[in-house]
């Protein structure tokens, strides 16, 4: 089981959290065409290595935050607030 650090509650076990997929997905502009909507709705990065993702602490403070996790080693490199964007959060 992953141990995830909630920025407000500290380190907790994975089953207190709910996964939210890739972080930092921008809403398309009003001039977006079908291809841009397809990218927004359906296409996500799926890298081998560092990945910035959203989690919510459903069994705790119920707040959303971001985690950078390595998709090959499962190592969690850190948690941060949704208002931040660290360097390795691609």
């Amino acid at each position: 089981m992953l141990q995830i650090r909630c920025p407000w509650c500290g380190p907790r076990e994975e089953n207190e959290f709910h996964y939210g997929g890739e972080a930092h997905i921008a809403y398309p502009g009003s001039d977006a065409d079908d291809a841009a909507w397809a990218k927004f709705l359906f296409y996500r990065n799926n890298p081998v290595g560092a990945f910035a993702e959203r989690w919510t602490h459903v069994a705790g403070c119920r707040r959303w935050f971001h985690v950078v996790r390595d998709t090959m080693t499962s190592e969690i490199r850190g948690s941060y607030l949704t208002t931040e964007k660290p360097e390795d959060a691609r």
Binding site: E53, R69, T71
Partner: peptide, 9 residues
């Protein structure tokens, strides 16, 4: 979560 680790929780 997305992963290539061939192991889970």
């Amino acid at each position: 979560y997305i992963s290539y680790a061939q192991r889970g929780s």
